[in-house]
Design a binder for these strands. Structure first.
Lengths: 171, 171
DNA sequence: GGTATGATTGTTATAGTATAACATGTCAAG
DNA sequence: CTTGACATGTTATACTATAACAATCATACC
């Protein structure tokens, strides 16, 4: 079991429910703790910049552009040049702690790091929330399609743009 | 039936087989002809720039960046400023005649325009060929995943990066 | 034909995203 | 305490994309 707490937090227990109300501070702290453990396990370092970038991403369920992140870093005394943000973001992505949302040219924190997953993302164009959806069946279908032509998949991008339940009501 | 010719062209009959040898000039001409028909049907115009951009994309199975396209356009006497390329590319994408490959920040011609399809792409990192794979099952799985949280999908991006059969052998 | 209308293209300028290359600093192993 | 690897800071630049306006072209209508 990935969590040690009770099931009162839909944002943690069912990460695809980022759209639903949940104890966000809680699920953020949870993800951060697991990130720390994962990185230590691999003998890597979650340095101040890297840690702070992850925290910044965890503060919202939205995706942030590299320059948004950079602006916040700079305001806190870190470097204010693009590579500072991009390097930290690249590190987090390589370690599976963050994901790049290509449709938005932006990044979002991984809500369940460590658990093997090729993620699929649901991007609400109303409120800009990005949710990580269960993607195993999607990946399986994609693998099957690729297999027909002998193509071997190494990495994949699966993103859906649309409206979350709340924003459907609003519209 | 989308084609009026016999089944000797894998590139046309099985568009997901872009990796396999096929009569490319033929399937390009085919796609172009159908593009013309589609646009006329909608009362829109396949102007010289638009038509030429589509031809340029059809000349290869690779994805081309907007600036690659622009360079070729400029060399042929069309405008040489970014909007010239982007407007034509946007038009083609809106009409389903071309697709944007987000992983590459690039564009590729649609190999079977007119047939309703939410495309999935297989991108070979060896030879840079981009193939359009059958994506109906993938979309179904994605819809199912989204449905669980009440999310309604409007547009989706499905791309896989990996190695095509030929490049697997080479490696 | 003439002309109003909207669509298309051309052009200028600028915004936004990303990386190469090198200098400096930090930390841990030997 | 030095070496070497990794991390960060910094400069500069490359690449991708769009806003805004001017000029042109095509079409439908009078």
């Amino acid at each position: 079991m990935a969590h040690s707490h009770i099931d009162a937090c839909p944002g943690c227990e069912a990460p695809d429910l980022a759209f639903a109300a949940h104890d966000h501070a809680h699920c953020s702290a949870d993800a951060l703790a697991r990130a720390e453990a994962l990185v230590a396990e691999k003998g890597l370092r979650l340095t101040p910049v890297r840690r702070r970038v992850l925290e910044i991403l965890l503060e919202e369920h939205r995706a942030l552009g590299a320059y948004d992140v950079l602006t916040r870093l700079a305001a806190e005394g870190f470097g204010n040049q693009p590579p500072v943000a991009y390097r930290a973001l690249d590190f987090l992505e390589e370690q599976g702690l963050a994901h790049r949302i290509r449709r938005l040219n932006a990044f979002t924190a991984c809500m369940h790091p460590g658990e093997a997953h090729a993620p699929a993302f649901l991007i609400c164009r109303g409120c800009n929330v990005v949710a990580e959806a269960p993607a195993a069946p999607v990946m399986a279908a994609l693998q099957a399609a690729a297999g027909q032509s002998g193509f071997v998949i190494e990495r994949s991008t699966i993103e859906a743009l649309g409206l979350c339940p709340s924003c459907q009501v609003a519209a």
